[in-house]
């Protein structure tokens, strides 16, 4: 058992966990933040994406102890009183159906937009599709997710 402490969605949290506890387990089981999902066991679906110190990571491929002292944001922490522009964009563009991949998609999308923005690169449709390489959606066929991310990017720029 190891004591881990970190800031999750702005709140300090702390727990004793077995060394092999994954960050996603810590988030779901210890913190009961169940918006972060588990869709695979080989780190390939992206349902579990959270932000670790501002960067998108797959929380199923990160140990809780490795996030010790870190600043973690989950889907529950993204909205700030009102929905984040990316969340709004997913709704307005029907970028979700069953909703299971959605938290991971949104966390990936906001990170993507921030990175392209920081590098001054243009987030084209092709770039969005390529950037979604680590996120699987079985429902939407991606068409509306791609549209939502493009729309979310412009919403983020103007907010």
């Amino acid at each position: 058992m190891t004591e881990v402490s970190m800031t999750v969605n702005g709140k300090p949290v702390k727990a004793d966990v077995p060394d092999n506890t994954l960050l996603v387990q810590f988030i779901r089981e210890n913190l009961r933040l169940t918006g972060t999902h588990v869709g695979c066991d080989t780190s390939q679906c992206g349902a579990c994406v959270v932000h670790l110190n501002g960067k998108a990571v797959k929380s199923c491929a990160t140990l809780a102890v490795a996030a010790n002292g870190a600043d973690v944001t989950t889907i529950e922490g993204l909205a700030n009183g009102e929905m984040h522009p990316m969340q709004t964009a997913f709704k307005e563009n029907h970028g979700l159906q069953c909703g299971f991949c959605t938290p991971g998609m949104i966390m990936t999308a906001t990170d993507m937009v921030a990175r392209y923005d920081a590098n001054g690169k243009e987030l084209t449709e092709a770039a969005i599709r390529e950037e979604l390489e680590g996120n699987i959606c079985r429902c939407t066929g991606y068409h509306n997710i791609v549209k939502a991310i493009a729309d979310g990017a412009s919403k983020m720029a103007s907010s």
């Binding site: 779901r28 169940t34 918006g35 529950e76 993204l78 959605t102 949104i106």
Partner: peptide, 20 residues
């Protein structure tokens, strides 16, 4: 626009594995 979207978008969907 879908009435059900909000809970999924803010991480408050309630799937079977979320229940204890």
């Amino acid at each position: 626009l879908r009435k059900e979207d909000k809970r999924f978008l803010i991480g408050k969907g309630r799937y079977t594995d979320d229940i204890i």
